[in-house]
């Protein structure tokens, strides 16, 4: 669904080549400042970088803006909202590239558990609620590619697990989903893990092969040890 050849952006990204398959769930992990958000923005066509990017076989530069909106949904970390749009109005913005039809809006709000907030102003929500609103807006696009930048940050345990389950569901529907996160244990459940370190791809592949104690020590500077732990899962 997305293929890149040697993306470079100053010192922020160096020679990043990757391939996201149809029906795949990919995690991007890495220390603060490793370039996770930058990578997602470049893949989404929001930041210009050197190198080639193709979405569904088409060179990104040849895809019109509305068509980009239909093919790829991106959720950033900026949760700033100064204008009092209602939650439903914001989710409905996901249909912008489709001429503002009403499809997928209600199901998106249901999936993110924000139906009860529909008429509330986005300026009067907590950070976690607002993140779910922006995720619902992305979901309403019904796009085949989803890029979410730390979607579980400031979500409570339950809603965090909901979001990861939603990503799995989108993967099962045949979409390509790429998520950046800090929780390495959550990344173990993904199909593929990309490890970014100071702008370059330190490792990529199956999480069990990639997230070894050696790599975690080298990239994050912490000791990883397998042991007993509390496991949280949806009922």
């Amino acid at each position: 669904m997305i293929r890149t050849e040697r993306i470079n952006l100053g010192t922020r990204l160096r020679d990043v080549s990757l391939h996201l398959l149809k029906g795949s769930l990919t995690a991007v992990v890495g220390p603060n400042g490793a370039g996770k958000s930058t990578l997602l923005q470049v893949l989404a066509g929001l930041l210009k970088a050197e190198g080639a990017i193709a979405w569904m076989g088409d060179d990104l530069n040849s895809i019109s803006f509305p068509e980009r909106g239909r093919r790829l949904a991106w959720v950033g970390q900026d949760l700033h909202a100064d204008f009092a749009f209602s939650v439903r109005d914001v989710v409905a913005q996901g249909r912008h590239a489709f001429g503002d039809d009403d499809e997928f809006i209600d199901s998106a709000m249901k999936a993110l558990d924000i139906e009860n907030l529909a008429d509330r102003s986005v300026t009067r929500l907590s950070g976690g609620e607002r993140r779910r609103v922006f995720l619902a807006r992305a979901l309403a696009t019904n796009a085949p590619i989803h890029l979410w930048d730390e979607p579980t940050a400031n979500l409570d345990v339950r809603h965090g697990l909901d979001v990861l389950q939603l990503a799995t569901k989108l993967r099962n529907e045949g979409r390509a989903v790429l998520i950046s996160l800090h929780d390495l244990r959550a990344a173990l459940c993904f199909d593929q893990v990309l490890v970014l370190d100071r702008g370059h791809l330190a490792a990529a592949g199956n999480p069990d092969d990639v997230l070894t104690p050696e790599l975690i020590h080298r990239v994050f500077g912490v000791k990883a040890r397998m042991g007993q732990e509390m496991i949280l899962e949806l009922p």
Binding site: L46, G69, W74, D89, H96, V122, F134, R137
Partner: peptide, 20 residues
Amino acid sequence: GRSMNLLSLGEQGAQSLGVN
């Protein structure tokens, strides 16, 4: 007006939804 609604909630978000 339609595109300005998206822009007022963030440049990158607006662009990702199909606004030039």
